[in-house]
Design a protein around this nucleic acid. Structure first.
Length: 215
DNA sequence: CGTTCGATGCACT
DNA sequence: GTGCATCGAACGT
């Protein structure tokens, strides 16, 4: 047993299906600090979740289950612990973790990661002939993180409880999280179901809450 | 700083 | 045909 790294725990536990088989707001909060990992032939990319949103049930107008069962949202009605990926605005893939189960369609949208592993690969996938992307921006925003990790419709319905796509506990220290309204949606903005690490440089949207940001 | 707006594919009405 | 769970360039203040 090589104790490889100094400091942080080296134990890496893949979250089991039972983790997701709970009320969605609890899962959302508990996903903060967990690590989304994608293992591909190109290499491994991974990042700690620092921002997520809950979408809960057919009564949530912003949830894809709002219209009832359709071809696209079918994964929401399936077992929890599965990836729900879809194409938005014709160009961005968004990844969710399906929760609850038992015919109760709900999911957590992963909105931002703190890059931990495979930063060069992320940068290569993000590159678009523009200037170099700073590390905190590589996985800032739901469309950006899927691109950085190489997640597309090919990963839709994959279990998150085993490679190649998994969410793991790497023993990352987690401080306080805060809640606020979900962003980027036209309906259901009244529900404070967005959860994030306050002040984190990889969180999307306006990251300086109230006090005014200094410097 | 701030806001506006085009890109681009497809699920759903 | 309409409208997105987005992003970033372009422009205004």
């Amino acid at each position: 047993m090589g104790r490889s790294r100094a400091g942080a725990s080296t134990r890496r536990r893949v979250l089991p299906r039972g983790f997701y088989e709970r009320d969605t707001l609890s899962v959302t909060a508990d996903l903060i600090g967990k690590v989304l990992v994608h293992r591909t032939p190109e290499g491994v990319t991974a990042g700690a979740i620092v921002e997520a949103e809950a979408y809960i049930g057919e009564s949530d107008p912003a949830c894809h289950a709002a219209p009832g069962p359709t071809a696209r949202n079918e994964p929401l009605y399936g077992p929890p612990g599965v990836a729900y990926v879809y194409l938005n605005y014709g160009m961005h893939y968004l990844v969710n973790a399906v929760t609850e189960g038992r015919g109760h369609p709900a999911a957590v949208l992963i909105r931002a990661l703190e890059p931990l592993e495979g930063l060069d690969l992320m940068a290569g996938r993000r590159a678009g002939g523009r200037r170099a992307i700073e590390a905190p921006s590589l996985c800032r925003g739901p469309g950006n993180l899927t691109r950085a990790l190489g997640i597309s419709l090919a990963q839709n319905r994959l279990p998150l409880t085993a490679p190649p796509l998994s969410i793991e506990d790497w023993g990352m220290p987690v401080g306080d999280v805060v809640w606020g309204p979900r962003i980027g949606i036209r309906v259901g903005t009244d529900r404070p179901w967005r959860c994030w690490v306050p002040g984190h440089s990889s969180v999307s949207g306006r990251r300086v809450p109230i006090d005014g940001g200094r410097t």
